[in-house]
Amino acid sequence: MDSVYIKRVLDGNTDDFRYFIQKYKYLAFSVAISVVKNEFDAEEVVQEAFLKVFKNLNSFKGKSEFKTWFYRIVINEAFRKIEKSKNDKLVLYEQNLPEAEDFTETFRGLNHEEQHVLVVESLNRIPPKEALALQLFYMDGNNMEEMANLTGWSIANIKVVLHRARKHLLTVVNAKIKDEHLILER
């Protein structure tokens, strides 16, 4: 279906680009926010990514799926965005984290909204690369090979990042449940 709309847009039917926006905006937003950590920056990233897609649609040769190509653009834009804002804000992520205890019972005892806030805040406190790996693996259902294709990381690297990401998330959630502050921001 994507290829039909690509052809239509390239033939000058600009309004048909709406199809891509409607189909991929949520996916793009969730990937972007996992990296940039804030809604406004994520919106900007997604906007930039769609514009880039529109400008370069004629260079898409169909060697990979459109979704893969688009994902890559969103990921690159998101990392470019945080690279730019690094100058304005210094964020330090805690690296040496204690082993997480089993908090599942406490977590399950929270209501849906509390669980959501807790997880979102915890994801905001782990490094962008790790949050992205969790998003791609657990939420978007990509396997290691697909992740390697999307991010340009090696499979060995993805395994390491995913391992660290799991540990990080569990530790931060655990600490938040205990009301500890694990991140130093200045």
Partner: peptide
């Protein structure tokens, strides 16, 4: 982590985005 991530879905808050 799989269970936690299921709670992480964030809807797009900008209705005029499109």
């Amino acid at each position: 982590v799989g269970e936690l991530m299921q709670k992480s879905a964030r809807p797009m808050p900008f209705s005029d985005f499109e």
